[in-house]
Computed example of a mutant assay.
Amino acid sequence: MQNVVAHGATIPALGFGVFRMSDAEVERVIPAALEAGFRHFDTAQIYQNEAALGQALRAAGARRDELFLTTKVWVDNYSADRFAASIDESLNRLQVEQVDLLLLHWPADKVPVAAQIEMLNAAQAAGKTRFVGVSNQNIAQMQESVRRSQAPIVTNQVEMHPYLPQAALVAASRASGVAITAYYGMADGAVPKDPALQKIGAKYSKSAAQVALRWLVQQGHVALSKTARPERVKENFAIFDFALDDSDMAAIASLARPDGRIVSPAGLAPAWDA
């Protein structure tokens, strides 16, 4: 497993996300994920499966000091009376004293970024998280977060896949020392079916999904993978025994398209840069 280092945080480059997974699916797949080698797990308050993840990790005997746990504060909790309390609830559900990384889930438009960052910093100062970051912020919001945050912003978790490579955001992030964490790497099921990615995979005896995950980590990003099927977990993890050549990287970059974005919920998403 390789790592991404940002502002003192060492983040396993491949994480296991539990978005849109039921408690039963989480409890069934987490042992397989641990066995395959996953140690970075990503959840969120709004996923409503923090408790299932915490229980599954404990039941599997996972050592806390070997795990990197990320959760995200939901927008309804961006208030003085709910922010800290909601994090305590998350920690209780996860059965830990602190998470490794705490993110603001969406910028939304009701609470200024400055106020969100102030509450996030307070949570870090209180020892509820080792590191802090943001999610789904555009370039201007991310740069404001970096300027206003006393604690370093270690990552911006955003949608990224071959159809949405986020070139402008990547450049701005690198200039600020902020790592990119990529979610929706499979483009909601489009990637595994893509003939161009399948053709590249055939060169390395890999699947299109493995090619896309490798493409993400080879750029220096953190990639979140996801499957509810234990038998598929090993495939998702097996991306560190090959490297894409320059022509492959260029071919994948050529798949970018103007309508590549999939996730953009009204009232939560910012004005995107591209």
Rank of each mutant, 00 (worst) to 15 (best):
K203C: 11
W215T: 06
K226A: 07
L224P: 00
R148M: 12
F131M: 04
P162C: 09
K226W: 00
E144W: 05
G185M: 04
Q137N: 14
Q198D: 10
R229K: 15
S225M: 07
M160G: 13
A228M: 11
V134D: 09
W215D: 08
G127D: 02
Q137E: 15
A172T: 13
S176H: 10
G177I: 08
Q141K: 13
S225L: 10
S135N: 10
Q219Y: 10
A209Q: 14
T227A: 05
L216E: 12
A196Q: 14
A190I: 01
G133T: 10
W215V: 08
Q166P: 01
N156Y: 12
Q150S: 14
G189F: 06
L197E: 04
L216V: 08
K128L: 11
M160V: 01
Q218S: 04
I200M: 08
Q210S: 10
Y183S: 02
A175F: 00
Q210V: 04
A151M: 05
R130T: 05
M186R: 02
K203L: 08
E159L: 12
Q219A: 13
T227I: 11
G177F: 00
V170T: 13
A228S: 15
A196D: 12
P195E: 09
A196I: 07
K128E: 09
V158F: 03
P195V: 01
A208I: 14
A190P: 04
V211K: 10
P195D: 11
L213S: 08
M142G: 11
P192A: 08
V211P: 07
V158M: 03
Q124F: 03
I200R: 09
L169W: 06
I139L: 12
L197D: 09
N136A: 09
A167I: 09
A196S: 12
L164E: 11
Q137F: 15
T129L: 01
P165E: 12
P165Q: 13
G177C: 05
T227Q: 03
H221L: 09
D188Q: 14
I153N: 08
Y163C: 02
R148W: 13
Y163S: 03
L169K: 02
Q210Y: 02
Q150V: 10
T155W: 01
V158R: 04
Y204F: 15
Q157L: 05
A182E: 05
T181N: 07
I180V: 12
V211L: 12
L216I: 14
L169Y: 04
S173Q: 15
I180M: 15
P230W: 05
Q137G: 06
L213N: 07
P195C: 06
P192I: 10
Y163M: 01
Q124D: 00
V134S: 12
A228L: 08
V178R: 00
S173C: 15
Y204M: 08
G177S: 05
H161M: 08
S173G: 14
Q141V: 10
S145G: 14
R174T: 11
T181M: 13
